[in-house]
Amino acid sequence: MFKIFKYSFFDLMRSRWSYVYFLFYLILGFVLLFLNNDVSKAVITLMNVIIILVPLISTIFGIMYYYNSKEFTELLLAQPIRRSSIFMGQFLGVSGSLLLSLVLGLGIPFVSYGLFKSTAIFDFSLLLVVGSFLTIIFTALSFNIAISNENKIKGFGYAVLLWLFMAVIYDGLFLMSLIVFEEYPLDTFSIAATMFNPIDLSRTLILLKLDISALLGYTGAVFKGFFGTNLGLMTSLLLLILWALIPIWRLIIKSQKKDF
């Protein structure tokens, strides 16, 4: 697995898109800091970008890599290598290179603007942790889509649809159900609905650190009791881990059964 990871990773590190992605974050980080020179402000803006963009880029990158490396995969399948190693290696290669672009691209500007002296270091670390989770989750999901769809265009369509659903449509349905059922106590439902979407979950996690005053001030005790505590933080992180593990697990199962 490690060898496949190594080849995928270095193959991707040489690709133009990795640089584009890296430079995008690098420029974004510097511009944000240059414009308001305030680390904690930049973290908020970055959150908006990360929550939306990381899943999109990870999904598209993942699905493109899978289809583009089909030949490579077939070459590997005839070699004495475990199937799960091939797919896990490729998956780790893609998510690894995306993670590297993200962490370095954002890390360099922030560190050079004195992150370690700023109080925002915790917020920033959380942002990176959440960004990393989203990268892993959405790369895994896109691999799942790709392995289940031989047709490239169909697979690509599903992937974009998945992103659209998680990033926008889900929240629309969520909002509608909250308004329709506003007569009922909705705290528990809201928490559950947040948990079932990794993007919402990540957003809530970061919001807890950034806009906590607004969030806790308005809603009921259940919310405060859950999200405001370490238990909430732990549960959310645990769920993010589950969100990463389940698609990876399915990827392995699916790869064992697939014909090439």
Binding site: I51, I179, E182, D187, T194, R203, A214, L215, Y218, T219
Partner: peptide, 20 residues
């Protein structure tokens, strides 16, 4: 306005959907 009406919707703060 929405949050005034249904306070629980605050969980959608800063979501892309609300921005749209």
């Amino acid at each position: 306005y929405v949050v005034n009406r249904t306070p629980e919707t605050i969980v959608l703060l800063r979501s892309l959907f609300m921005d749209i």
